[in-house]
């Protein structure tokens, strides 16, 4: 047969209150095994309180060649940031 274990991406929440963060990847035959492996591989030193696993093939990634059209148009929209607006110094709590 010789079918290789697929690759999984592992996301770990370090502690409650924080988001899950991408920690790395590993191989597993199924989701259950991916979770168990992730626990053993990525939380050996108490690095996590919650794990998500996603088979890598299900992740759709943006193409860096489109970075210009995707991300650069946001750069000149300075009015989305509070520093765009001039207020007199004596206005507090804003």
């Amino acid at each position: 047969m010789n079918k290789n274990w697929p690759l999984w991406e592992i996301f770990v929440r370090s502690k409650n209150g924080l988001e899950h963060r991408h920690f790395g990847s590993l191989h597993a035959a199924d989701a259950e095994m991916a979770l168990e492996n992730a626990r053993d591989v990525y939380t050996r030193r108490s690095e996590g309180v919650s794990i998500w696993v996603v088979e890598s093939k299900y992740i759709t990634a943006s193409n860096p060649e489109h970075n210009g059209e995707l991300f650069e148009p946001a750069q000149d929209k300075v009015y989305r940031h509070p520093t765009f607006y001039d207020l007199p110094d004596d206005v507090k709590h804003m």
Binding site: H27, E36, N37, D40
Partner: peptide, 11 residues
């Protein structure tokens, strides 16, 4: 049989 199982069995 795999790196992953080595790590698990060692745990």
């Amino acid at each position: 049989p795999s790196l992953e199982t080595d790590i698990a069995c060692t745990n």
